[in-house]
Design a binder for these strands. Structure first.
Lengths: 149, 149
DNA sequence: CTAATTTCTCAAGTTAACTTGAGATCAAGG
DNA sequence: CCTTGATCTCAAGTTAACTTGAGAAATTAG
């Protein structure tokens, strides 16, 4: 077998992602391996990166379908070019920035909360800002920014 | 009924969290309301904040049991004091900082990737660093730091 | 060539975090 | 008092993201 093609076991070993998970990712359209005559999957070396990317983004809280949407912009069956990566990165960067902003707001709020001690319902700014809710409608929006639909 | 006690419907309206979800949170030990003689739940005003906190942390990617562990350090049935909030915040801040760091690393890596264009398997540093994997063992660890177990 | 791995497909089970539905009770307005 | 609308409990269904298991074929090691 050509040295540049990987079996599903190889890919699993290289990425640390279970074989069953890789097959599952294929079902969800995250990777599209070639098949041998016998029907065995064969992956490109670039799929190692692809799978790693999925795993990382996923652990950071992005749902698979969102990741799939981003990865769909990368070419299957060839090494991504600079332009390919630029495209996929743009969308993801925004998501990442939003998430970082949300976490930062939560952290700062926690800090502020420690500062004021929340000893008084009447004086705590957080408490009085519609009980932690946003300006428009119910729910804890003001810390979150808009929901990522 | 005393003005300071809220029904589950009130709490739902104030937090934007569904009544069924609030009952579910109780099952998981995230809130512990009082009961009326008839068995109806009655919440403290501070539970609004509690629920909001759960929702926010949860949307930022923390699993309920982790949030429960943190919230367990806050007192039920009385308004949290400065010391209470300080305790709960310490643990959470570390988690949040870790998450921000992970996201930042991912973002920077993406940027670096755009820079190099990944045109050459031989030249791309990311590509050659064990195919995006860490120094020790398989899996996409080097971007993640240690797994939060 | 034989035995041990690996892989294949397909169906079903698992965990988290809820929602939905059924049947009954409780509370508030007219 | 009577009728909505809230609430209650408990069981079962739902979605995401996988894992596990069964039975069979393909590959690899010795």
């Amino acid at each position: 077998m050509p040295a540049h093609l990987l079996t599903i076991g190889d890919l699993s070993a290289r990425t640390g992602v279970a074989v069953s998970a890789i097959r599952f990712y294929e079902e969800r359209g995250l990777v599209t391996p070639h098949r041998t005559a016998a029907g065995h999957r064969r992956y490109l070396r670039s799929d190692i990166r692809r799978i790693s990317f999925v795993k990382i983004a996923q652990e950071l809280g992005f749902p698979l379908d969102r990741i799939a949407t981003q990865l769909a912009r990368l070419p299957q069956n060839r090494t991504p070019t600079r332009a390919d990566w630029t495209r996929i990165s743009r969308g993801f960067r925004e998501d990442i920035d939003e998430r970082i902003a949300g976490l930062t707001r939560l952290r700062d709020t926690l800090d502020g909360c420690i500062g004021c001690g929340c000893l008084s319902l009447k004086r705590c700014a957080l408490y009085n800002k519609r009980d932690w809710a946003g300006e428009d409608g119910p729910g804890p929006r003001f810390l979150m920014g808009e929901r990522r639909t």
